[in-house]
Nucleic acid binder design. Structure first.
Length: 592
RNA sequence: GGGGCCGUAGCUCAAUUGGUUAGAGUACCGGACUGUCGAUCCGGGGGUUGCGGGUUCGAGUCCCGUCGGCCUCGCCA
């Protein structure tokens, strides 16, 4: 070993010991006769002291040490006596150096891991090896390890088997865009990287591995967001001989286990369950942030009867008028800020944003004069408004009022600091519709995926009223994120084909795309279902971050590039020829 | 594909209405210093203002394009 201890473990009990440490030079304080080095590894920091009167030659070398040099120090653990540094866990001791080896000099780093003012993210990603030396990212990766281990332990204790599924699979053009991998030995044919191991895990159920779990890498070639990377990790779970509640129960247990292991807190079970219809009505979204209230309220009845044209006309043409109450915010938001909020809801489709400041028993607003006093009172009552409150309303279709007001609610919750960013509010949303009408394509699409089992009592509506059919699906939500999603699957090939028919996938096409699953279903398929949890998002939320890149060692930029390695990159013509691939790029010299 | 924000020294930022030689802190280099821990003190070097074009007597600043990063709508079964 090139070291006897780490930089985080020596204490006053170790005084007198001869030790060898290795690490990075975090800081140097050169007094010529005395040189102090803060030596860092991932366990902590230990101060090294070099003394001119002990060794002149070593003093020369020590004085030349700079940030991020990697060294080995031999020495004796000595007391700092009256010079204790209370900021360091090792602050009671230091190492009186008797030997120094410089393993590696560092170029002057573009930023130091201790920097208080973070450089821009582009630089951090390019020099990710420096960024990863920062304490914050180290904490995040340790947390990620702990959560992954706790998850594996939990499933192991519950008789799950961790089974790997292929990364090179068959492209199924449903859902997200695939990342494709060309086959050399089958010219013109391609593998697809998995969007999720969905079909493989169902086949594992049919094969009798009735409790499966995998930390599954998944790939989706879609545009990125703060909470979305093109490659990510799912805690992928599937169980046979189960009903919906069995899955919810096992995942409830996982959540309690994680909260206990990571935070030492008790999570009350069962987790709350909401129907999809309920959360859409109360929050306007299928993944509400439950850390604060501010629920949506329907004032359609008042709006339809009042004299304000926008409200009245919206109700008469079948739309809705809904709003919310920002309690005590009447003075917080100036007219100019409300104009900004109006633009904001405009981005979510709303044509306007009505607002009322609640005064003593009346409403103050540019549109107040269009409303009778009785309507003022009715609105105040509907939203339990009190003086000082600020009420917002959107008049539009059901879906526009939902998306505009849920966006507004999120923004107000953040701006008004209505919640603790580290709090976790976890809940289930169940009874999603099985299908959604795709307006552009004029057809039904699967809301979750095409293998999702309908709610039994809705089965007969499958042909008569497909939009009303509920799915045996469920989302696990936390703090406004979708953090898990799953369903009971179809295990009957006849029902499966019925659903394919509704989706416009005829039996010939179904056989071509999913034939291997359909064939497996014909050989004795147990009832089964499962779920996939977004590991990256869960780590992000446990860490109290709002950016998924901070919990991934080597993340990609919004344009899906790895600034560290330079991926993606052009490849040699020879490689392309082996794969029988030609590229067809716009001519960069062409003028447009 | 659409909308928004950003790009000035290695880094974080400043630079009046378009006006003279683009500044500060830190890092870096040299010197002083035997108890520092954000060491201190003295001195020094360091700029294609992302890139290209335009307007102007004059552009870091205004306009157009482009590259890159971030946020977001669409997209993400």
């Amino acid at each position: 070993m090139l070291r006897s201890h780490t930089c985080g473990e020596l204490r006053s009990d170790d005084i007198g010991q001869s030790v060898t440490l290795g690490g990075w030079v975090q800081n140097y304080r050169d007094h010529r006769g005395l040189v102090f080095i803060d030596l860092r590894d991932r366990y902590g920091i230990t101060q090294i002291v070099f003394n001119l009167s002990h060794d002149e030659q070593m003093q020369e070398v020590a004085r030349a040490l700079r940030s991020e040099d990697v060294i080995q120090v031999e020495g004796e653990v000595i007391s700092r006596s009256e010079n204790v540094n209370p900021k360091l866990a090792t602050g009671e001791i230091e190492i009186k150096s008797t030997g120094l080896v410089v393993f590696s000099k560092s170029k002057t780093p573009p930023f130091e891991p201790t920097t208080a003012e973070l450089p821009n993210e582009e630089l951090r990603l390019k020099y990710r090896f420096l960024d990863l030396r920062r304490e914050e990212l180290q904490k995040n990766l340790v947390l990620r390890h702990q959560m992954t281990k706790a998850t594996r332990d939990y499933f192991d204790q519950n008789d799950f088997l961790e089974i790997e599924t292929p990364m090179l699979g068959r492209s199924t053009p449903e859902g997200a865009r695939d990342y494709l991998v060309p086959s050399r030995v089958h010219p013109g044919s391609f593998y697809a990287l998995p969007q999720s191991p969905q079909i493989y895990k169902q086949i594992l159920m049919i094969a009798g591995y009735d409790r499966y779990v995998q930390m599954a890498r998944c790939f989706r070639d879609e545009d990125l967001r703060a909470d979305r990377q093109p490659e990510f990790t799912q805690v992928d779970v599937e169980m046979a001989f189960v009903e919906r509640d069995d899955i919810l129960e096992i995942i409830d247990g996982l959540m309690a286990h994680l909260v206990k292991e990571i935070r030492g807190e008790e999570l009350p079970l069962p987790l709350p369950r909401f129907t999809h219809a309920d959360v859409m009505e109360r929050y306007g979204t299928d993944k509400p942030d439950l850390r604060f209230g501010m629920e949506l309220v329907d004032i359609g009845e008042i709006a339809g009867a009042c004299g304000f044209g926008v409200f009245k006309n919206t109700i008469e043409s079948g739309g809705r008028v809904r709003g919310l109450n920002a309690r005590g915010a009447a003075e917080t938001y100036s007219r100019k800020m409300i104009d900004e909020l109006t633009d904001y809801v405009g981005e979510h489709g709303a044509k306007g944003l009505a607002f009322f400041r609640v005064a003593d028993g009346s409403l103050d607003s540019p549109i107040a004069k269009f409303l009778e006093d009785e309507h003022h009172q009715a609105i105040i009552e509907s939203l339990s408004a009190e003086p000082g409150d600020l009420l917002f309303f959107v008049a539009d279709s059901d879906s526009v009022t939902s998306s505009a007001l849920s966006a507004l609610r999120s923004r107000l919750g953040l701006e008004l600091e209505l919640y603790d960013p580290r709090e976790l509010k976890i809940a289930w949303v169940v009874d999603f519709p099985l299908l959604g009408w795709n307006e552009t394509e004029q057809r039904w699409d699967a809301e979750h995926h095409p293998f999702c089992f309908p709610v039994e009592e809705d089965l007969e509506s499958l042909t008569s009223d497909p939009g009303a059919v509920r799915a045996q699906s469920y989302d696990l939500i936390c703090n406004g994120y979708e953090a898990g999603s799953g369903s009971i699957r179809i295990h009957d090939p006849v029902v499966q084909q019925q659903v394919f028919d509704l989706l416009g996938i005829n039996s010939e096409e179904a056989e071509m795309r999913f034939g291997f699953l359909l064939e497996a279903l014909r050989y004795g398929a147990p009832p089964h279902g499962g779920i996939a949890l977004g590991l990256d998002r869960w780590v992000m939320m446990f860490a109290g971050h709002d950016n998924i890149r901070d919990v991934i060692a080597f993340p990609k930029t919004q344009r899906a590039a790895d600034l560290l390695s330079g991926a993606p990159s052009p490849v040699d013509d020879r490689q392309l020829r082996e794969l029988s691939i030609q590229t067809d790029l716009p001519d960069p010299t062409a003028s447009s």
